[in-house]
């Protein structure tokens, strides 16, 4: 078993049949580890149109006071939709492997 999985609850203490009985608990499930490419915004270019925010399938783009502030990397899966949809090419997808080496 992977080390990170050893900390999770055992079969005696989880709901039966794979039911989710706690609404909204997808937030607790970190999917950021699935990512191979990380989206990065160039704030200089961004025009705050919020198209990326609308398109992101994982609600992983953080917006505050009508400005794009960055990413929720715990949940962003790196699909690249935001980069594809950005009308001014403000988003670049960077390979995670290269990022961690640096």
């Amino acid at each position: 078993m992977a080390k990170k999985d050893q900390q999770k609850p055992g079969w005696k203490s989880i709901p039966e049949g794979g039911l989710i009985i706690e609404p909204g608990n997808a937030d607790d499930y970190k999917t950021g580890g699935w990512r191979t490419y990380r989206p990065m915004i160039d704030q200089e270019i961004c025009i705050n149109c919020h198209i990326c925010w609308i398109y992101c399938p994982d609600s992983s783009i953080i917006s505050k006071d009508e400005e794009i502030k960055g990413y929720d990397y715990d949940h962003c899966k790196g699909c690249g939709i935001c980069a594809n949809e950005c009308p001014v090419d403000a988003i670049t997808m960077l390979e995670e492997g290269n990022l961690s080496e640096k």
Binding site: D5, W11, I14
Partner: peptide, 8 residues
């Protein structure tokens, strides 16, 4: 997935 299917 891998982290809960087996427990179920």
């Amino acid at each position: 997935l891998q982290d809960y299917y087996f427990e179920h």
